[in-house]
Design a protein around this nucleic acid. Structure first.
Lengths: 197, 197
DNA sequence: TTGACTAGAACGAACGTTCGTTCTAATATC
DNA sequence: GATATTAGAACGAACGTTCGTTCTAGTCAA
Protein backbone atom coordinates (compact mmCIF):
# COMPACT_ATOMS: atom_id res chain seq x y z
CA UNK A 1 0.00 0.00 0.00
CA UNK A 2 2.83 2.40 0.76
CA UNK A 3 4.25 4.05 -2.28
CA UNK A 4 7.67 2.86 -1.22
CA UNK A 5 6.97 -0.86 -1.28
CA UNK A 6 5.00 -0.52 -4.48
CA UNK A 7 7.72 1.40 -6.23
CA UNK A 8 10.59 -0.82 -5.23
CA UNK A 9 8.67 -3.96 -5.97
CA UNK A 10 8.12 -2.68 -9.46
CA UNK A 11 11.48 -1.00 -9.89
CA UNK A 12 13.69 -3.82 -8.67
CA UNK A 13 12.23 -6.19 -11.22
CA UNK A 14 12.54 -3.93 -14.20
CA UNK A 15 14.76 -6.27 -16.24
CA UNK A 16 12.51 -9.21 -15.43
CA UNK A 17 9.38 -7.34 -16.35
CA UNK A 18 10.98 -6.27 -19.60
CA UNK A 19 11.79 -9.87 -20.47
CA UNK A 20 8.29 -11.07 -19.63
CA UNK A 21 6.68 -8.37 -21.74
CA UNK A 22 9.12 -9.04 -24.55
CA UNK A 23 8.38 -12.75 -24.60
CA UNK A 24 4.70 -11.99 -24.78
CA UNK A 25 5.03 -9.44 -27.57
CA UNK A 26 7.56 -11.37 -29.63
CA UNK A 27 5.53 -14.55 -29.58
CA UNK A 28 2.43 -12.60 -30.59
CA UNK A 29 3.80 -10.26 -33.23
CA UNK A 30 7.39 -11.33 -33.81
CA UNK A 31 10.62 -9.45 -33.30
CA UNK A 32 10.32 -6.99 -36.15
CA UNK A 33 6.72 -6.00 -35.58
CA UNK A 34 7.42 -5.29 -31.92
CA UNK A 35 8.91 -1.86 -31.24
CA UNK A 36 10.92 -0.89 -28.20
CA UNK A 37 8.12 1.55 -27.48
CA UNK A 38 5.73 -1.40 -27.37
CA UNK A 39 7.98 -3.15 -24.87
CA UNK A 40 8.14 -0.03 -22.71
CA UNK A 41 4.37 0.31 -22.73
CA UNK A 42 3.64 -3.35 -22.01
CA UNK A 43 6.26 -3.74 -19.29
CA UNK A 44 5.66 -0.39 -17.62
CA UNK A 45 9.39 0.28 -17.83
CA UNK A 46 10.58 3.43 -19.53
CA UNK A 47 12.61 3.44 -22.72
CA UNK A 48 15.58 4.98 -20.96
CA UNK A 49 15.49 2.24 -18.38
CA UNK A 50 15.33 -0.49 -20.99
CA UNK A 51 18.40 0.92 -22.70
CA UNK A 52 20.13 1.19 -19.36
CA UNK A 53 19.69 -2.53 -18.63
CA UNK A 54 20.08 -3.87 -22.15
CA UNK A 55 22.46 -2.59 -24.76
CA UNK A 56 19.86 -2.37 -27.50
CA UNK A 57 16.78 -4.09 -28.86
CA UNK A 58 18.82 -7.09 -29.94
CA UNK A 59 20.23 -7.20 -26.41
CA UNK A 60 16.74 -7.68 -25.03
CA UNK A 61 16.03 -10.47 -27.48
CA UNK A 62 19.27 -12.28 -26.78
CA UNK A 63 18.94 -11.95 -22.99
CA UNK A 64 15.51 -13.48 -23.31
CA UNK A 65 16.78 -16.25 -25.53
CA UNK A 66 19.64 -17.08 -23.22
CA UNK A 67 17.49 -17.15 -20.11
CA UNK A 68 15.15 -19.61 -21.79
CA UNK A 69 18.03 -21.76 -23.03
CA UNK A 70 19.45 -21.85 -19.51
CA UNK A 71 16.18 -22.93 -18.03
CA UNK A 72 15.80 -25.62 -20.66
CA UNK A 73 19.30 -26.84 -19.96
CA UNK A 74 18.49 -27.19 -16.26
CA UNK A 75 15.36 -29.19 -16.98
CA UNK A 76 17.24 -31.52 -19.29
CA UNK A 77 19.96 -32.04 -16.69
CA UNK A 78 17.30 -33.08 -14.22
CA UNK A 79 15.98 -35.63 -16.65
CA UNK A 80 19.44 -36.93 -17.46
CA UNK A 81 20.03 -37.53 -13.75
CA UNK A 82 16.62 -38.87 -12.84
CA UNK A 83 16.46 -41.71 -15.36
CA UNK A 84 18.86 -44.51 -16.24
CA UNK A 85 17.90 -45.94 -19.61
CA UNK A 86 18.07 -43.88 -22.77
CA UNK A 87 14.54 -45.02 -23.48
CA UNK A 88 13.23 -43.38 -20.31
CA UNK A 89 15.36 -40.26 -20.70
CA UNK A 90 14.25 -39.51 -24.21
CA UNK A 91 10.64 -40.22 -23.42
CA UNK A 92 10.84 -37.83 -20.49
CA UNK A 93 12.33 -35.16 -22.76
CA UNK A 94 9.40 -35.37 -25.13
CA UNK A 95 6.98 -35.35 -22.21
CA UNK A 96 8.70 -32.22 -20.89
CA UNK A 97 8.47 -30.49 -24.25
CA UNK A 98 4.80 -31.37 -24.52
CA UNK A 99 4.10 -30.05 -21.02
CA UNK A 100 5.93 -26.81 -21.70
CA UNK A 101 4.04 -26.34 -24.94
CA UNK A 102 0.75 -26.62 -23.10
CA UNK A 103 1.69 -24.61 -20.01
CA UNK A 104 3.82 -21.90 -21.62
CA UNK A 105 3.23 -21.91 -25.35
CA UNK A 106 4.99 -18.57 -25.66
CA UNK A 107 8.22 -19.99 -24.33
CA UNK A 108 8.06 -22.87 -26.76
CA UNK A 109 7.12 -20.57 -29.59
CA UNK A 110 10.12 -18.34 -28.98
CA UNK A 111 12.50 -21.23 -28.41
CA UNK A 112 11.95 -23.51 -31.34
CA UNK A 113 9.65 -21.74 -33.69
CA UNK A 114 11.32 -18.46 -34.51
CA UNK A 115 14.30 -17.75 -36.72
CA UNK A 116 16.67 -16.25 -34.21
CA UNK A 117 19.43 -15.78 -36.71
CA UNK A 118 17.24 -13.29 -38.50
CA UNK A 119 17.60 -10.87 -35.60
CA UNK A 120 20.30 -12.25 -33.26
CA UNK A 121 23.43 -11.55 -35.23
CA UNK A 122 25.98 -13.79 -33.52
CA UNK A 123 23.61 -16.55 -32.51
CA UNK A 124 24.03 -20.08 -33.76
CA UNK A 125 20.87 -21.85 -34.90
CA UNK A 126 18.77 -23.30 -32.07
CA UNK A 127 19.68 -26.83 -33.01
CA UNK A 128 23.31 -26.02 -32.19
CA UNK A 129 22.40 -24.80 -28.70
CA UNK A 130 23.16 -26.69 -25.53
CA UNK A 131 19.69 -28.21 -25.00
CA UNK A 132 19.72 -29.69 -28.47
CA UNK A 133 23.26 -30.93 -27.98
CA UNK A 134 22.18 -32.61 -24.76
CA UNK A 135 19.31 -34.29 -26.53
CA UNK A 136 21.70 -35.64 -29.15
CA UNK A 137 24.08 -36.77 -26.42
CA UNK A 138 21.35 -38.93 -24.93
CA UNK A 139 20.93 -40.59 -28.29
CA UNK A 140 24.67 -41.14 -28.54
CA UNK A 141 24.72 -42.85 -25.16
CA UNK A 142 21.78 -44.95 -26.27
CA UNK A 143 23.87 -46.24 -29.15
CA UNK A 144 26.80 -46.95 -26.86
CA UNK A 145 24.49 -48.94 -24.58
CA UNK A 146 22.98 -50.71 -27.60
CA UNK A 147 19.51 -49.41 -26.89
CA UNK A 148 19.49 -47.56 -30.19
CA UNK A 149 20.70 -48.87 -33.53
CA UNK A 150 24.11 -47.67 -34.64
CA UNK A 151 23.86 -44.88 -37.18
CA UNK A 152 24.67 -41.22 -37.70
CA UNK A 153 23.76 -39.31 -34.52
CA UNK A 154 21.98 -36.45 -36.19
CA UNK A 155 19.97 -38.89 -38.27
CA UNK A 156 18.89 -40.86 -35.22
CA UNK A 157 18.11 -37.70 -33.24
CA UNK A 158 16.05 -36.28 -36.07
CA UNK A 159 14.02 -39.46 -36.26
CA UNK A 160 13.61 -39.84 -32.53
CA UNK A 161 12.58 -36.26 -31.74
CA UNK A 162 11.34 -35.14 -35.16
CA UNK A 163 7.83 -36.49 -34.82
CA UNK A 164 7.32 -34.85 -31.44
CA UNK A 165 8.71 -31.53 -32.60
CA UNK A 166 6.50 -31.59 -35.68
CA UNK A 167 3.58 -32.24 -33.38
CA UNK A 168 4.52 -29.27 -31.23
CA UNK A 169 4.66 -26.86 -34.13
CA UNK A 170 1.36 -28.22 -35.41
CA UNK A 171 -0.15 -27.59 -32.01
CA UNK A 172 1.26 -24.06 -31.89
CA UNK A 173 -0.21 -23.49 -35.34
CA UNK A 174 -3.64 -24.51 -34.11
CA UNK A 175 -3.79 -27.64 -36.23
CA UNK A 176 -3.96 -30.00 -33.25
CA UNK A 177 -7.01 -29.70 -31.04
CA UNK A 178 -6.29 -31.78 -27.95
CA UNK A 179 -3.50 -31.16 -25.44
CA UNK A 180 -0.31 -32.78 -26.63
CA UNK A 181 -0.16 -35.13 -23.67
CA UNK A 182 -3.00 -37.14 -25.15
CA UNK A 183 -0.80 -38.04 -28.11
CA UNK A 184 2.31 -38.87 -26.10
CA UNK A 185 1.84 -42.64 -26.02
CA UNK A 186 1.32 -42.96 -29.76
CA UNK A 187 4.09 -40.55 -30.72
CA UNK A 188 6.55 -42.24 -28.44
CA UNK A 189 5.68 -45.69 -29.70
CA UNK A 190 6.31 -44.59 -33.31
CA UNK A 191 9.47 -42.69 -32.53
CA UNK A 192 11.10 -45.31 -30.39
CA UNK A 193 10.16 -48.19 -32.66
CA UNK A 194 11.97 -46.38 -35.46
CA UNK A 195 15.35 -46.19 -33.79
CA UNK A 196 15.38 -49.02 -31.24
CA UNK A 197 17.67 -51.98 -31.90
CA UNK B 1 22.03 -9.04 -79.94
CA UNK B 2 19.60 -6.46 -81.27
CA UNK B 3 18.55 -3.90 -78.73
CA UNK B 4 14.95 -4.83 -79.37
CA UNK B 5 15.22 -8.47 -78.37
CA UNK B 6 17.34 -7.62 -75.36
CA UNK B 7 14.93 -5.01 -74.13
CA UNK B 8 11.81 -7.03 -74.52
CA UNK B 9 13.40 -10.12 -72.99
CA UNK B 10 14.18 -8.13 -69.89
CA UNK B 11 11.04 -6.07 -69.81
CA UNK B 12 8.52 -8.81 -70.35
CA UNK B 13 9.79 -10.83 -67.43
CA UNK B 14 9.68 -8.10 -64.85
CA UNK B 15 7.34 -9.91 -62.44
CA UNK B 16 9.38 -13.09 -62.74
CA UNK B 17 12.64 -11.29 -62.13
CA UNK B 18 11.13 -9.61 -59.11
CA UNK B 19 10.09 -12.96 -57.65
CA UNK B 20 13.50 -14.50 -58.26
CA UNK B 21 15.30 -11.61 -56.61
CA UNK B 22 12.85 -11.65 -53.75
CA UNK B 23 13.35 -15.34 -53.07
CA UNK B 24 17.07 -14.80 -53.00
CA UNK B 25 16.93 -11.81 -50.68
CA UNK B 26 14.28 -13.19 -48.34
CA UNK B 27 16.10 -16.46 -47.85
CA UNK B 28 19.33 -14.58 -47.15
CA UNK B 29 18.11 -11.74 -44.95
CA UNK B 30 14.47 -12.46 -44.23
CA UNK B 31 11.36 -10.48 -45.05
CA UNK B 32 11.84 -7.60 -42.65
CA UNK B 33 15.50 -6.97 -43.37
CA UNK B 34 14.82 -6.84 -47.08
CA UNK B 35 13.57 -3.48 -48.33
CA UNK B 36 11.59 -2.92 -51.48
CA UNK B 37 14.54 -0.83 -52.62
CA UNK B 38 16.74 -3.92 -52.22
CA UNK B 39 14.36 -5.89 -54.40
CA UNK B 40 14.37 -3.16 -57.04
CA UNK B 41 18.16 -3.06 -57.06
CA UNK B 42 18.64 -6.83 -57.18
CA UNK B 43 15.99 -7.47 -59.81
CA UNK B 44 16.76 -4.47 -62.00
CA UNK B 45 13.09 -3.56 -61.90
CA UNK B 46 12.09 -0.12 -60.72
CA UNK B 47 10.17 0.52 -57.54
CA UNK B 48 7.24 1.94 -59.46
CA UNK B 49 7.10 -1.14 -61.61
CA UNK B 50 7.13 -3.43 -58.62
CA UNK B 51 4.17 -1.60 -57.14
CA UNK B 52 2.48 -1.74 -60.49
CA UNK B 53 2.65 -5.54 -60.65
CA UNK B 54 2.19 -6.30 -56.97
CA UNK B 55 -0.09 -4.42 -54.62
CA UNK B 56 2.58 -3.88 -51.97
CA UNK B 57 5.55 -5.54 -50.32
CA UNK B 58 3.34 -8.18 -48.76
CA UNK B 59 1.90 -8.80 -52.21
CA UNK B 60 5.33 -9.72 -53.50
CA UNK B 61 5.87 -12.11 -50.62
CA UNK B 62 2.53 -13.79 -51.03
CA UNK B 63 2.84 -14.10 -54.81
CA UNK B 64 6.18 -15.80 -54.25
CA UNK B 65 4.75 -18.08 -51.60
CA UNK B 66 1.82 -19.09 -53.75
CA UNK B 67 3.95 -19.81 -56.79
CA UNK B 68 6.13 -22.11 -54.71
CA UNK B 69 3.13 -23.83 -53.15
CA UNK B 70 1.69 -24.41 -56.60
CA UNK B 71 4.87 -25.92 -57.86
CA UNK B 72 5.09 -28.17 -54.83
CA UNK B 73 1.51 -29.26 -55.34
CA UNK B 74 2.27 -30.28 -58.91
CA UNK B 75 5.28 -32.32 -57.86
CA UNK B 76 3.26 -34.11 -55.20
CA UNK B 77 0.51 -34.88 -57.69
CA UNK B 78 3.08 -36.49 -59.95
CA UNK B 79 4.25 -38.69 -57.12
CA UNK B 80 0.72 -39.60 -56.11
CA UNK B 81 0.07 -40.78 -59.67
CA UNK B 82 3.39 -42.47 -60.32
CA UNK B 83 3.38 -44.87 -57.36
CA UNK B 84 0.82 -47.31 -56.03
CA UNK B 85 1.71 -48.22 -52.48
CA UNK B 86 1.69 -45.66 -49.71
CA UNK B 87 5.14 -46.88 -48.80
CA UNK B 88 6.53 -45.88 -52.19
CA UNK B 89 4.60 -42.63 -52.36
CA UNK B 90 5.79 -41.35 -48.99
CA UNK B 91 9.34 -42.41 -49.64
CA UNK B 92 9.28 -40.54 -52.94
CA UNK B 93 7.97 -37.45 -51.14
CA UNK B 94 10.89 -37.44 -48.76
CA UNK B 95 13.29 -38.05 -51.61
CA UNK B 96 11.77 -35.08 -53.47
CA UNK B 97 12.12 -32.83 -50.43
CA UNK B 98 15.74 -33.89 -50.00
CA UNK B 99 16.51 -33.21 -53.65
CA UNK B 100 14.88 -29.81 -53.55
CA UNK B 101 16.81 -28.92 -50.42
CA UNK B 102 20.08 -29.71 -52.18
CA UNK B 103 19.23 -28.20 -55.56
CA UNK B 104 17.30 -25.14 -54.45
CA UNK B 105 17.91 -24.55 -50.76
CA UNK B 106 16.37 -21.09 -51.03
CA UNK B 107 13.05 -22.52 -52.13
CA UNK B 108 13.04 -24.94 -49.24
CA UNK B 109 14.13 -22.26 -46.83
CA UNK B 110 11.29 -19.98 -47.83
CA UNK B 111 8.71 -22.76 -47.90
CA UNK B 112 9.13 -24.55 -44.64
CA UNK B 113 11.56 -22.55 -42.59
CA UNK B 114 10.12 -19.08 -42.35
CA UNK B 115 7.21 -17.82 -40.30
CA UNK B 116 4.91 -16.62 -43.05
CA UNK B 117 2.21 -15.55 -40.66
CA UNK B 118 4.55 -12.94 -39.30
CA UNK B 119 4.33 -11.03 -42.58
CA UNK B 120 1.54 -12.62 -44.66
CA UNK B 121 -1.53 -11.42 -42.85
CA UNK B 122 -4.22 -13.71 -44.18
CA UNK B 123 -2.06 -16.76 -44.74
CA UNK B 124 -2.69 -20.02 -42.91
CA UNK B 125 0.36 -21.77 -41.46
CA UNK B 126 2.34 -23.80 -43.99
CA UNK B 127 1.22 -27.04 -42.48
CA UNK B 128 -2.37 -26.16 -43.44
CA UNK B 129 -1.39 -25.61 -47.06
CA UNK B 130 -2.29 -27.94 -49.89
CA UNK B 131 1.07 -29.74 -50.14
CA UNK B 132 0.96 -30.62 -46.47
CA UNK B 133 -2.65 -31.70 -46.77
CA UNK B 134 -1.70 -33.96 -49.66
CA UNK B 135 1.07 -35.50 -47.61
CA UNK B 136 -1.40 -36.23 -44.82
CA UNK B 137 -3.84 -37.65 -47.33
CA UNK B 138 -1.27 -40.20 -48.43
CA UNK B 139 -0.94 -41.28 -44.82
CA UNK B 140 -4.69 -41.54 -44.50
CA UNK B 141 -4.87 -43.80 -47.55
CA UNK B 142 -2.08 -45.87 -46.08
CA UNK B 143 -4.24 -46.55 -43.04
CA UNK B 144 -7.21 -47.44 -45.20
CA UNK B 145 -5.04 -49.92 -47.09
CA UNK B 146 -3.61 -51.25 -43.82
CA UNK B 147 -0.08 -50.31 -44.72
CA UNK B 148 0.07 -47.92 -41.76
CA UNK B 149 -1.18 -48.58 -38.25
CA UNK B 150 -4.51 -47.01 -37.39
CA UNK B 151 -4.06 -43.85 -35.35
CA UNK B 152 -4.66 -40.11 -35.47
CA UNK B 153 -3.65 -38.83 -38.92
CA UNK B 154 -1.67 -35.84 -37.73
CA UNK B 155 0.19 -38.01 -35.27
CA UNK B 156 1.12 -40.54 -37.92
CA UNK B 157 2.09 -37.82 -40.41
CA UNK B 158 4.26 -36.06 -37.86
CA UNK B 159 6.08 -39.29 -37.12
CA UNK B 160 6.45 -40.34 -40.74
CA UNK B 161 7.69 -37.00 -42.10
CA UNK B 162 9.01 -35.41 -38.91
CA UNK B 163 12.44 -37.01 -39.00
CA UNK B 164 13.04 -35.99 -42.60
CA UNK B 165 11.85 -32.44 -42.03
CA UNK B 166 14.08 -32.12 -38.98
CA UNK B 167 16.94 -33.34 -41.12
CA UNK B 168 16.18 -30.71 -43.74
CA UNK B 169 16.20 -27.84 -41.29
CA UNK B 170 19.41 -29.18 -39.77
CA UNK B 171 20.94 -29.22 -43.21
CA UNK B 172 19.76 -25.69 -43.95
CA UNK B 173 21.28 -24.63 -40.62
CA UNK B 174 24.64 -26.07 -41.66
CA UNK B 175 24.58 -28.81 -39.04
CA UNK B 176 24.61 -31.62 -41.58
CA UNK B 177 27.66 -31.89 -43.79
CA UNK B 178 26.80 -34.40 -46.48
CA UNK B 179 24.04 -34.04 -49.07
CA UNK B 180 20.75 -35.24 -47.65
CA UNK B 181 20.44 -38.04 -50.17
CA UNK B 182 23.17 -39.96 -48.36
CA UNK B 183 20.92 -40.19 -45.31
CA UNK B 184 17.76 -41.15 -47.17
CA UNK B 185 17.99 -44.91 -46.61
CA UNK B 186 18.51 -44.62 -42.87
CA UNK B 187 15.90 -41.92 -42.35
CA UNK B 188 13.33 -43.82 -44.33
CA UNK B 189 13.98 -47.05 -42.49
CA UNK B 190 13.45 -45.33 -39.13
CA UNK B 191 10.42 -43.36 -40.23
CA UNK B 192 8.60 -46.21 -41.92
CA UNK B 193 9.36 -48.71 -39.19
CA UNK B 194 7.69 -46.32 -36.76
CA UNK B 195 4.32 -46.22 -38.43
CA UNK B 196 4.10 -49.43 -40.46
CA UNK B 197 1.66 -52.10 -39.33
C1' DT C 1 26.67 14.33 -2.30
C1' DT C 2 27.20 10.63 -5.04
C1' DG C 3 26.02 6.98 -8.23
C1' DA C 4 22.59 3.93 -9.92
C1' DC C 5 18.36 4.11 -11.98
C1' DT C 6 14.12 6.15 -14.34
C1' DA C 7 11.76 9.07 -17.34
C1' DG C 8 10.07 10.44 -21.88
C1' DA C 9 10.95 14.15 -25.29
C1' DA C 10 13.74 14.68 -29.26
C1' DC C 11 16.50 13.04 -33.16
C1' DG C 12 17.77 11.26 -37.57
C1' DA C 13 17.97 7.40 -40.61
C1' DA C 14 15.43 4.14 -43.16
C1' DC C 15 11.37 2.41 -44.79
C1' DG C 16 6.96 1.51 -47.55
C1' DT C 17 4.34 3.86 -50.56
C1' DT C 18 2.58 7.46 -53.82
C1' DC C 19 2.48 10.17 -57.84
C1' DG C 20 3.43 12.71 -61.98
C1' DT C 21 5.72 11.53 -65.75
C1' DT C 22 7.91 9.06 -69.73
C1' DC C 23 8.35 5.15 -72.66
C1' DT C 24 6.58 1.26 -75.56
C1' DA C 25 3.76 -1.09 -78.53
C1' DA C 26 -0.55 -2.15 -80.25
C1' DT C 27 -4.76 -0.43 -82.47
C1' DA C 28 -7.64 2.69 -85.02
C1' DT C 29 -8.31 6.26 -88.61
C1' DC C 30 -7.50 8.20 -92.78
C1' DG D 1 1.67 3.53 -95.21
C1' DA D 2 1.44 7.30 -92.24
C1' DT D 3 -0.50 9.45 -88.30
C1' DA D 4 -3.21 9.77 -84.13
C1' DT D 5 -4.90 7.56 -80.11
C1' DT D 6 -4.76 4.64 -76.31
C1' DA D 7 -3.45 1.32 -72.55
C1' DG D 8 -0.52 0.08 -69.42
C1' DA D 9 4.33 -0.81 -68.15
C1' DA D 10 8.33 1.49 -66.24
C1' DC D 11 10.46 5.00 -63.71
C1' DG D 12 12.48 7.29 -59.50
C1' DA D 13 12.20 11.53 -56.71
C1' DA D 14 9.64 12.85 -52.85
C1' DC D 15 6.62 12.18 -48.79
C1' DG D 16 5.08 10.98 -44.32
C1' DT D 17 5.69 7.73 -40.85
C1' DT D 18 7.88 4.66 -37.80
C1' DC D 19 11.52 3.00 -35.42
C1' DG D 20 15.81 2.40 -32.71
C1' DT D 21 18.51 5.14 -30.17
C1' DT D 22 20.33 9.21 -27.59
C1' DC D 23 20.05 12.94 -24.46
C1' DT D 24 19.01 15.74 -20.63
C1' DA D 25 16.66 16.16 -16.48
C1' DG D 26 15.04 14.21 -12.51
C1' DT D 27 14.50 10.66 -8.45
C1' DC D 28 15.92 7.79 -4.83
C1' DA D 29 18.87 5.20 -1.61
C1' DA D 30 23.01 5.17 1.07
Amino acid sequence: MTSKSENTAAAQNAPLRVLQATLHLFSQKGYFSTSVHDIARESGVSIGSIYHHFRDKEGVASALFESLLERMTRELENIANRYDSTHDKCRAVIELLFEMTEDEPEVMEYMLYSKHREFLSGQLPVCSSQPFRMMREMVEQGMAKSEIRKMDVITASSCLYGGAIRMITSRLDGLVELPLQSYLTDIWECSWKGVAV
